[in-house]
C-alpha cells in the first residue's frame, strides 16, 4: 500500500508538469491582456504599456515566462523599473517555492487573495456536501430497499428531475420565491436573505448564518443529491442481490440488520470514491451559486480573473485546482482499497 501511494505520488509530478505547460500556453495564447485599458476610459498610453509590459515580464518569449513562473527570476537580471535596462536581480520566487505572483488586477499577492476567499468557499461547499450526504444516503438506501414502492418511485422521479434543472435557473427561482415573494409573517421582512454570508453588522449569530446558508445550499445540493441518491440506490440494489446478503437473510438475521449493517456498508463504498472525486469542488466552489447569492468565494474570483485576463490569478487557481483533483483521485483510490478488502495493489 505504501509503495502504491508513493508510486502514484511520483506519477503525479510529471502529470502536474504537463498540465501546467498546457494551461500556461492556453492562458497566454488568448488575445487581450492585462494591459488593455480597464473600464470606461479604455486608454492606456503606449509608453505606459511598454513599461507595464516590461515590469510584468510580458516582453519575454512565452517559454521564458513559463520558466519564471515556475522557478522565479531571482537568479537572473530583470528590468524592474521598465526603462529597458536590466539592472537588478528579480524578486519572483516561482510557484515551486510558493510564490504565485501578484494579481494584475489589483496588485495584491495572488495567494493572499485566494486565502481571503478560500475559507468562504470551504464553508459553503462543506456544508453543502454534508447536507448532500445526510439527504442522499437515506433516500438512496430506503428507495433501494423498498424498490418499486411509492417512496421509491417518488424519489427516483425527483432525482431525475433534480438532474434536469439548470442550476442557475433553480437559483433564480429560489430567490424569487423565498426572497421576493414570501415574507416572514412576524417581521414582514423577506423570508430568507438574498445573498451574502451574514447580515451586515450583526456579528456572528448562528441563526443568521443558517438563514444565509439555506438558499445557496439548496441550490448547490439539488443536482448532487439527485445523482448521489440514484447512484446509491443502484449500488444498494446490486448489493441486496449478492450471495452474502442472501446468506445473511438465510441465517435469520433481522431484515433491519441485513440492510443497514451488511448491505448499506458495502453499497456506500463506491459512493465514497465518487465523493472523494467531488472533494475538489470544495476548492473551486460553485460559480453559479456564488454569482447568484453574492457569495465571496473562489468561483467568482476565478471568473473575475478569466474575464479580466488576470494571468497570475488564473494560473494559480487552475494549478492548485488540478493539484486538488490529483490528490482527490489518489484519495479515492486509497479509500476504495481501504474499504474494499478485495482490492489489492502491488
Amino acid at each position: 500500500m505504501g509503495r502504491y501511494i508513493a508510486r502514484r505520488l511520483l506519477q503525479a509530478i510529471p502529470m502536474l508538469f504537463m498540465i501546467s505547460v498546457v494551461l500556461f500556453a492556453l492562458v497566454n495564447i488568448a488575445p487581450g491582456g492585462p494591459l488593455s485599458g480597464h473600464g470606461r476610459s479604455r486608454r492606456i498610453r503606449p509608453e505606459k504599456a511598454e513599461i507595464l509590459k516590461r515590469q510584468f515580464g510580458l516582453d519575454k518569449p512565452l517559454p521564458i515566462q513559463y520558466v519564471i513562473w515556475l522557478v522565479g527570476n531571482d537568479w537572473m537580471r530583470v528590468d524592474a523599473d521598465g526603462d529597458g535596462v536590466t539592472e537588478s536581480y528579480g524578486e519572483r520566487r516561482g510557484i515551486l517555492r510558493g510564490d504565485f505572483g501578484f494579481s494584475y488586477r489589483n496588485r495584491q499577492p495572488v495567494l493572499e487573495e485566494i486565502a481571503d476567499r478560500l475559507p468562504n468557499t470551504i464553508y459553503l461547499m462543506g456544508v453543502t456536501l454534508i447536507v448532500v450526504g445526510i439527504i442522499a444516503i437515506p433516500l438512496g438506501a430506503i428507495s433501494a430497499v423498498r424498490q418499486y414502492s411509492v417512496f421509491d418511485i417518488v424519489v427516483t422521479t425527483l432525482s431525475f428531475m433534480g438532474q434536469a434543472i439548470p442550476e442557475f435557473w433553480l437559483g433564480l427561482i429560489l430567490i424569487l420565491i423565498f426572497y421576493a415573494w414570501l415574507n416572514n409573517p412576524f417581521t414582514g421582512a423577506p423570508l430568507l436573505p438574498s445573498g451574502g454570508m451574514q447580515t451586515f453588522g450583526m456579528g456572528f449569530a448562528i441563526w443568521d448564518r443558517i438563514q444565509h446558508l439555506i438558499l445557496p445550499v439548496t441550490m448547490g445540493m439539488v443536482g448532487w443529491v439527485a445523482w448521489y441518491s440514484r447512484f446509491l440506490r443502484s449500488g444498494m440494489l446490486d448489493v441486496l442481490h449478492q450471495d452474502y446478503v442472501r446468506t445473511a437473510r438465510a441465517k435469520g438475521l433481522s431484515e433491519h440488520l441485513v440492510v443497514y449493517r451488511h448491505a448499506l456498508k458495502n453499497a456506500v463504498i463506491p459512493l465514497v470514491t465518487i465523493f472523494a472525486l467531488d472533494l475538489p469542488s470544495i476548492f473551486a466552489g460553485s460559480l453559479y451559486v456564488e454569482l447568484l447569492f453574492s457569495w465571496p468565494g473562489m468561483g467568482r474570483l476565478y471568473y473575475q480573473a478569466a474575464t479580466g485576463r488576470d494571468y497570475p490569478m488564473l494560473m494559480a487557481i487552475l494549478i492548485i485546482g488540478a493539484g486538488f483533483m490529483i490528490t482527490a483521485n489518489l484519495l479515492a483510490d486509497i479509500a476504495y482499497a481501504y474499504l474494499d478488502p478485495r482490492i489489492r495493489y502491488d
Binding site: L26, I29, A306, G321, A322, N329
Partner: peptide, 26 residues
C-alpha cells in the same frame, strides 16, 4: 491513460470557462 488522467485532473468548469473565453476570440 496518463494523458486521460491529466485531462480528468483539470478542474473542468474552470477550464471550460477559460477555453470558451479563448476559443471564441481566436
Amino acid at each position: 491513460m496518463r494523458i486521460t488522467d491529466a485531462a480528468l485532473s483539470l478542474p473542468s468548469l474552470l477550464v471550460l470557462i477559460l477555453l470558451s473565453a479563448i476559443l471564441r476570440e481566436v
